[in-house]
Design a protein around this nucleic acid. Structure first.
Lengths: 163, 163
DNA sequence: CGAGTTTTGTTGACGTGTCACTAAAGATGT
DNA sequence: ACATCTTTAGTGACACGTCAACAAAACTCG
């Protein structure tokens, strides 16, 4: 029998407060995105990733890489990409170098949507996150995030550029 | 035009790291719950709330209060309660004092499920949250959670007992 | 080359959450 | 009493994520 000590009242309050705060935060942000640009949170994440890739290298991104950098399931990505293509936010073409691969490319409409979202997005994060945190708290959060992730499954996490 | 300053690289890293860490954290916890007690996260939340109410007052809880304390939509709760009743985790009876109300009561099977989950739950939160945080970081998180919530919509948040 | 394995993506079923709508009971005010 | 809000819950349609099963291309290595 695993028998970890139950949490006391303080711990329960900290834990539940933390979880509910973060969930309310992202769900509010998602509503903002829908309002500003008719984008769900995940859709926005995909388009942002595509737009960023497009800035650096080419406009074509392998679906595999997308899934890797977002840390998502193949299936989830496949479903979402299909819907997004139907909405005209991106295009899917088969990859020439690897016949089982899929190349994804953001469309003009997709780009317009991210741009429409961007200022509201930045403002939201600023208002509800950075503006209410001291620099020390921001650092603490960054450290906490890192430490938490390190205790979890591999779950690769993109942005593996210059350290 | 709202024109909030875009985030710089550091801010982007902090923000994305924070969001992805918390999302991985709760999704891992949800998997743990399924594994330990065949409960989804929301199901566990409902049963926990019911079990706590049962300790203090009576075993009957108004669906409205449940929704209030969980901060959920009526519809979401209704759907979930229906499924949970079908699974035998709880019972729904019409409320005698208010004919449009619904009284919810946890069943023996429901209680067993929460108990089956409890030790794994506590261990998970301890291992992946409290154990990796210094007391200062825990305090910082509590303060941060409170501040973030205060910038969001009313979103009542239960536990309104002794301050 | 050819058999077996791995990688990549798709599909269908299912549980879930959201939204807009409805229904029925309480509360309110005249 | 009556008409009118408001509160409480349920419903159906749809978007979404997960899981398991599948298919096809690529890789491995004998």
């Amino acid at each position: 029998m695993t028998n970890a000590r139950e949490m006391d009242d303080r711990e329960n309050a900290v834990w539940r407060g933390f979880v509910s705060a973060t969930q309310q935060l992202v769900s509010s942000l998602d509503k903002q995105l829908v309002q500003d640009a008719q984008l769900s949170g995940p859709e926005h994440a995909v388009l942002t990733a595509l737009a960023e890739h497009a800035e650096q290298s080419d406009t074509l991104v392998r679906a595999r890489d997308l899934g890797l950098s977002l840390g998502w399931d193949r299936s989830r990505l496949s479903h979402l990409l299909k819907r997004m293509e139907a909405r005209g936010l991106l295009e899917r073409t088969s990859c020439p170098s690897d016949a089982r691969g899929l190349d994804v490319q953001i469309t003009a409409a997709g780009l317009e949507a991210v741009q429409q979202a961007s200022s509201g997005y930045a403002e939201f994060v600023r208002t509800h996150f950075f503006d209410v945190l001291t620099p020390q708290e921001q650092d603490a959060l960054a450290s906490v995030s890192r430490k938490i992730k390190s205790t979890l499954e591999p779950q690769c996490d993109s942005e593996a550029g210059a350290a």
